[in-house]
Amino acid sequence: MANDPIHQFQIHDLTGSFNLGGYEISFTNSALFMGVTVAVITGFLLLASSRAALVPGRLQSVGELWYGMIDNMVNNVLGPDGRKFFPLVFSLFSFVLVANMLGMFPYFFTVTSHVIVTASLALFVVGLVVVVGVWKHGLGWFKLFVPHGVPLAILPFISLIEIISFLSRPISLGLRLFGNMLAGHIVLKVFAGFVVSLGAAGGLGILGAIAPLAMAVALTALEFLVAFLQAFVFAILTCVYLNDALHTHH
């Protein structure tokens, strides 16, 4: 049972069922780890900024690096009028990063391995892009889908492609993160399962277990990289999409 690779994604409620308007919204292990994620982010950053030293210590440096990375990203991609989105991009990045990282602990639940979470975040981002775009540019913003200088004959076709590409953004944004986290955890679990079952066979099996063990170690390192990278990708794509809403170049 321990080496069932799907088991780790199981959601079960912790406090008993709780209904709101006919929907089951009980406090689950997923909700718990969302809470832990928020607590870890807030706790860490408050601790890091508690001394507020002029010359930062190690912890404060990490906090400032964290802040500075997203700060730079927002400034570079969105420019000065994108400042108001900085807290949002920072929250998205931090939430995804810490949720991914917490998922690396054995027996911890990975919030971002569920498509509903990642897709909701992605839909929220793209929905925000539409809202901000229309807010700033009015209905003219929809000219985004009608590129300049395209012959009239193929314009409907191009517009269709533009619309499809825009609509596929939340799908790719959400599925990328979901797929990476899910697949990584499954593969890791499968290799770890090999180690256990081969080791249990004894003798030659123990010798044979070395290869999947090495693989599991390597994959763990890779997963840490992926955990960071996916959070980074999510944040930078959020910036790129928001840039479309703020500065329409068409």
């Binding site: 959601i11 929907y23 919204i25 406090f27 689950t28 909700a31 969302m34 509903i116 979470v117 909701s120």
Partner: peptide, 12 residues
């Protein structure tokens, strides 16, 4: 499990 996840995601 979606309503629960959505609800708590929104809150947190």
């Amino acid at each position: 499990t979606y309503p629960s996840q959505l609800f708590w995601l929104l809150i947190f």
